[in-house]
Amino acid sequence: MIKTRNLTKSYGAFQALHDLNLEIGEGSVFGFVGANGAGKSTTFSILATLLPPTSGDAFVGGHSVRTSPAEVRRLIGYMPDFFGVYDQLKTEEYLDFYAASYGIPAGERKVLIGQLLDLVNLSEKQDAYVDSLSRGMKQRLCLARSLIHDPKVLILDEPASGLDPRARVEMREIMKRLKHMDKTILISSHILPELAEMCDEIGVIDRGRLLARQSVREIHSMMKGDRVITVKLNGPAAAAVKFFEERPFVSSLRRDDEAGEVTFSFGGSQADQEELLAAAAAGSLGIRSFSEEETDLEDVFLSLTKGGGVS
């Protein structure tokens, strides 16, 4: 649904985006992670037909942003990172204006606006003036605005930025609902755990280059290399230690008889790990539980952007 081909944007000598190649399938949710100035908003602006690329091209639904920007605009719903609202317009009028801007017939607008306000939990604010809404409410209203023409693609540039924890939770809940509406979503954030919760894939961008593009789980394993697995046991650890020692990819095995657990590093793939744990569970080792040490996604991001990324 979204494709970029050697997408590059330069401002004089400064390269904001460097040969970005990206492909996002229909219905998937792609999270774009990067520090300020990494190139996220530049990519989004090009996809929203607001900024011409220096070279390369981007496609939405098969339409090039260079040659068919009007077609691209019909397919996308865009929510910028910073936006303003019109004074002296009520919430319903605000959405009605954008509905009219997308050519939605007047007779269909009222029902549509009601549904969207319901989706973003703003039904009670239908008659409130837009500039009187809180920041979180304005963010949700802007999200409703970007959905007004039922776009196939949603481009959301830091939709939760600047929100208090409560508003952030509300926004996250709405995002989860959107995920089930079969829309292709491209979302950016610097709050990584939030993206991890709702995205199918994450792309890490730094200084205009895409450093990694993997599922959240894969990024974890790529950076950490070996995962640390703890196995809790009901009985003596000897049999379990022997079992794991003989298995491939297992190293640094430690036993803690007092706690009744065995801890080891595992360097195999996700599938290897599943196979190992299935075999352990099937054997009579007295296993009570398995747990994998949670890695901090912030660490992953910092490691990726500091070292220049993974190939």
Partner: peptide
Amino acid sequence: EKQTLNMLLTTSQ
């Protein structure tokens, strides 16, 4: 200046 232009420009108008 009010940061409403980009949203207006991404509509079908």
